[in-house]
Design a protein around this nucleic acid. Structure first.
Lengths: 232, 232
DNA sequence: CACTCATAACTGGTCTGACCAAGTGTACGG
DNA sequence: CCGTACACTTGGTCAGACCAGTTATGAGTG
């Protein structure tokens, strides 16, 4: 189909991006290694990587590594720099939960369909570790753990846009997410029971590759938390 | 200033374009000649010319000459038209549709709940204008119209995150959205029938403030388009 | 004379292997 | 324990060769 070697390689690399094989923030093989592994000369590799860079997919650093850029990052510079007030604002927290519900629902849906066996295995292990750690953790640790779980699901979706958005969203709005947990704990004195079984439901649905169930469970998980904050 | 030789050369070549030294339709020096006249290696020349081609300034022909393209053709390249191939990639177009489905579903949901009466009125007028304009428009006009309609819905959601994301999403990925419409038209020869009735369903659901119906209709609207591209 | 067509002389595409320049990592010395 | 020097890895550039298309040339033919 394509005659150009470099063009062909470029398409292959993009494919790796779209399918989530290469994650935003991750790094490409070095040019020499790629040249060897793909059986083309370094000139050809350079040509392809150069295009990728020109199109904004990756960031090439002389002497350093070539990293995959997050496609949405430049457009995601929310004002209110580290605005603590933003993360503490109840209305904003609700909105963050709304977006989480939609985002994690979709991520779970595609993860159930497209996750590799290795990713399922990793997800399963992470889930078991979560169950074991139990109640001895700090609120902060719980929040991080929760996000790590959901980020793994997002990565398993093999969906470049969902991955990009999830990454930015979780890092940028971690404050708000953490704030939700803090408020919930302050209100009920402990981690709500529902969370545990909801995580289980999500985990289960993805494991058996039931996409619709995964979406429903993930969405419900967030909306459950949202309801806890509703009546204030 | 610039350390990269190839980057410097790229700037020089662009300068030649901007000043009219190189005219559209005209041809560049051959790579070997340019390498000699500029005192850099051919690799460097190739890198620079490759960038020029990637950015759409010139047209490189194997065995033939490298010519300056007419830049007015892609006038519809509304946002910063850098990576053209991004919006043309079918897999990426599918992903954009996925995200649109989720985003517009949520937007419609909240719009149905929270839109002001003034917004409902404006939305209604926009909808009627859409129906009247009918089939006489260009593909580009249709795409813009479609986006304006959905952006109005997003704004009516009164949901900062959804509005923000919609804004950047629609402007940044307009190319891909436009590409979908182009491909659909090429395949079926005309605007699919479903679109009209789907817009009607969304409009109707929001008017009567039926949130769930609005979400379903908006999601289905996008997935309908997505299905049209599925079997290729 | 006009036309055909092989071919020589271009063009861009790829390869090799070398060297330079700029980060990264590590082990050694304080 | 920390900082610094240095070896190693990464990307940037170079040179010269060969392959693969395109185009111009010119001899041969009608």
């Amino acid at each position: 189909m394509n005659q150009n070697l470099s063009e062909t390689l470029l398409q292959q690399l993009k494919e790796s991006l779209y399918t989530g094989e290469l994650l935003p923030g991750g790094q490409l093989e070095s040019q020499r290694r790629m040249s060897e592994s793909r059986g083309v000369s370094r000139s050809t590799v350079r040509e392809a990587v150069g295009q990728l860079e020109a199109e904004g997919y990756v960031e090439v650093n002389h002497g350093g590594k070539t990293r995959v850029k997050n496609l949405l990052e430049p457009y995601f510079d929310m004002p209110v720099g580290e605005g603590k007030s933003l993360g503490d604002n109840p209305e904003f927290q609700r909105q963050v939960l709304d977006v989480r519900a939609m985002l994690e629902g979709e991520a779970a849906f595609y993860a159930a369909t497209r996750a590799t066996d290795a990713q399922l295995k990793a997800l399963d292990e992470e889930y078991r570790k979560m169950q074991q750690r139990g109640q001895r953790e700090t609120t902060l640790e719980k929040a991080k753990e929760d996000l790590r779980f959901h980020m793994m699901i997002a990565e398993s979706s093999h969906h470049l846009l969902i991955i990009s958005f999830s990454q930015l969203f979780y890092t940028r709005f971690f404050n708000a997410i953490y704030g939700v947990l803090t408020r919930t704990l302050k209100k009920y004195g402990r981690y709500p029971d529902g969370i545990r079984s909801q995580h289980s439901a999500i985990h289960q649905a993805i494991m058996v590759r039931n996409a619709e169930a995964a979406r429903t469970a993930a969405t419900e998980h967030i909306l459950y938390t949202r309801r806890h904050l509703e009546n204030e």
